[in-house]
Design a protein around this nucleic acid. Structure first.
Lengths: 206, 206
DNA sequence: TAGATTGTTAATCGATTAACAATC
DNA sequence: TAGATTGTTAATCGATTAACAATC
């Protein structure tokens, strides 16, 4: 049985990738897979997949492999996405609007249920299922509803200030689209999405 | 002097982060920095920053540190972003439209100059500076203009087929927004952007 | 049973860090 | 000069892989 006491973050980062592949297999009607097959599909060694999973328990059968549906449900449980998560979004510019309209979020268990912008022209607008509210009410709403995750979709120059307020109000995890490294206490999680950084990484090899 | 023969990919991945921090410092008017200061800002050890940079040359002065502008230009040269890169985008849905309108791309040297979609209703539409074209002409245009980078913004179910066509036409690097692991030859580079995978990684810790 | 594949151990590989001579 | 900081080496740390007994 896996020892959960000290699981490397890099392992956690691979679980959503495994989950994505399992979801794809399930959609095709495939019922069984193996670490070998998963690894081939993902460009990861089979040993690594077995090692990663072993941190959390024993999910397979020798000689057979893994039940796609069972392993998928286990990963969802481990990642705590066997429920729906509500997200607060700050910023209602082009990118914010795209994120609010992106169906992939809610399909996969994440719903944006509050949106804030400091621009009065945007306040009151309907965006997806929400009405854009004044940033001044942000802390209050986060506290009242107990939001834990925030998507930061404001300009880089405003991001740190917004994040500081969110943390004070109780946010524990940020999905940050602003192209800036945020300064946060060690118990706060940040994931960065910066397409330009990805592009710059690839041009090196061209 | 650095030995460029075998630079770890993980080092390349940090260079855009360093560049982002330097750009921020430059905007503030700061002329000098040190590995210590950069590391503090980015949550990275100063030793790692010096080691990373040492792969490419000697850019600092003992006792002083680094000239922000000089180091920035060197990183731009190393990453090959001291010129403008043209990108072809496939998919003109919500996300594609947001990407086409995202000013951050062209600000930082990447321009989307061709857009394709297989939906006739979208063809002919103006999106940013481009007119959406029929996917059937994609290979032809990629070859004629010599595009090397493609942004994939089609549904997951269509992504692999689109990528296969792009590779045949000469694309070497993909920025992939479809939530699926692509199968590509070893000389082709792929960077993945999947906000849901990032969110799933964070909920583990909540 | 024979063949296949798991979970786990030990070995290998690679990345990070500490330390310091060099020197601005 | 004295203080600060680089670039680099060697030591440490952690992640990946190979191999295999267990067993379905």
């Amino acid at each position: 049985m896996g020892n959960r006491s000290k699981i490397p973050d890099i392992v956690i980062g691979r679980l959503p990738i495994y989950l994505r592949a399992l979801t794809f297999m399930e959609a095709k009607g495939q019922e069984i897979t193996s670490s070998q097959e998963l690894g081939d599909k993902l460009g990861i060694s089979s040993a690594q997949i077995r090692k990663d999973l072993s941190h959390f328990g024993e999910f397979g059968k020798q000689g057979t492999g893994y039940h796609v549906d069972f392993l998928k449900q286990q990963l969802r449980r481990i990642l705590k996405i066997d429920c729906e998560w509500e997200i607060v979004m700050i910023g209602a510019g082009d990118l914010g609007r795209a994120l609010a309209h992106y169906g992939g979020l809610s399909e996969r268990g994440f719903r944006i249920t509050a949106i804030f912008d400091k621009d009065p022209a945007k306040q009151g607008q309907k965006l997806g299922a929400c009405v854009v509210q004044d940033t001044r009410h942000m802390a209050e709403v986060i506290k009242a509803k107990g939001y834990k995750i925030a998507a930061i979709v404001v300009p880089a120059s405003a991001a740190q200030a917004v994040v500081d307020i969110c943390i004070k109000a109780g946010i524990k995890a940020f999905l940050n689209y602003a192209p800036i490294t945020l300064s946060v206490p060690p118990d706060i999680h940040v994931q960065y999405i910066d397409p330009v950084a990805h592009l710059q990484r690839m041009t090196f090899y061209l």
